[in-house]
């Protein structure tokens, strides 16, 4: 019992770590982007300020489902983050860091947010949710195919298991071992993070930030926290799956930073797709590459 409570405490620690890490990372990357545009940029801790400011404001609520959805969203994401390994040894629930838990438990959070947004009664929110879900359908399929290839190769769907398989030298880092798959995964990750060119569902000027249109104050703050943790989960997934995980926490931070920064830089120079372009894009080349990669790796056994 005590052990489980300890684990849960540990897990909450991981979630908090993720939040802090990603929020700081977000601030730093805003700074980097600003430098790229010859600006000074905000303080590195600007994102913290933003979130705490939102939490301090007096919000409006559109009924119980509006609030309930937000709680469910944040709860689901915190729950998901609690399973996330940071290094191969720092895992809250050892042996239970199954890949599918992340894919599906994260969906609870998404569902909560979608529900809450629709509950606000604003059509723009529903449109945003529609776009978010459509985008999800697009990026998730090629990504899952690549991950399935990895799971098939390593024979485990445990995230640390996959990371360890790369560290012990059974496989190269999968970004090298499965180069095509890696490219697909990068594109999918950009979709997951809602970075340009796939940020169709936020589209501030077009549909007034989509799902978030009716949020302000603490609900928005909680959604920001949720968003930060979601990014933490997704980027960490990527690190563990393709970059060989991390032996030490320092390595994790470095890899995490590189992945996030690179994606950020890429997204900063791109425009935005239309929603049906997103779908056709993902179902064209990334899916094709993912399938080719899977064929090569599974049926031909050519893994570098």
């Amino acid at each position: 019992m005590i052990e489980i409570l300890m684990n849960i405490g540990f897990g909450l620690g991981v979630a908090t770590f993720g939040f802090v890490l990603q929020t700081a990372m977000g601030g730093i990357n805003r700074k980097i982007a600003a430098r790229l545009q010859k600006r000074r940029g905000p303080k590195w801790y600007q994102e913290f300020i933003d979130i705490f400011k939102l939490l301090s404001k007096r919000a409006t609520s559109h009924g119980w489902i509006f609030d309930f959805g937000v709680i469910m969203a944040l709860g689901g994401i915190i729950g998901t983050a609690m399973f996330m390994p940071i290094t191969s040894s720092i895992v809250a629930f050892e042996g239970y860091d199954n890949f599918f838990i992340f894919v599906y438990l994260i969906a609870v959070g998404m569902l909560g947010m979608a529900m809450s947004a629709s509950g606000s009664g604003n059509p723009l929110a529903s449109i945003g949710v529609m776009r978010a879900l459509t985008t999800m359908l697009a990026y998730e399929v090629p990504f899952m195919v690549v991950v399935m290839t990895i799971i098939k190769l390593t024979g485990t769907s445990s995230l640390t298991g996959i990371a360890v398989a790369q560290q012990t030298g059974d496989f190269n880092w999968f970004m090298i071992a499965l180069p095509l798959g890696f490219i697909v995964a990068v594109m999918s990750l950009m979709g997951m993070l809602g970075k340009k060119p796939f940020e169709t569902y936020i589209a501030p000027a077009e549909i007034a930030s989509g799902p978030m249109v009716e949020y302000g104050g603490k609900q928005l703050g909680m959604l920001f926290i949720m968003h930060e943790i979601t990014i933490f989960i997704e980027v960490s997934l990527f690190v563990h799956l393709f970059l060989g995980g991390a032996e030490t926490i320092i390595m994790f931070l470095i890899k995490y930073f590189i992945v996030y920064a690179v994606l950020n830089l890429v997204s900063n120079v791109l425009g935005r797709f239309k929603i049906d372009q997103v779908v056709t894009f993902f179902f064209k080349w990334p899916l094709f590459f993912a399938v080719v990669q899977a064929m090569i790796a599974i049926h031909l056994g050519w893994v570098i």
Binding site: I8, I78, G79
Partner: peptide, 10 residues
């Protein structure tokens, strides 16, 4: 349980 904890925290 973990989901429950998450929701509780939220």
């Amino acid at each position: 349980c973990v989901f429950g904890v998450g929701v509780f925290v939220a």
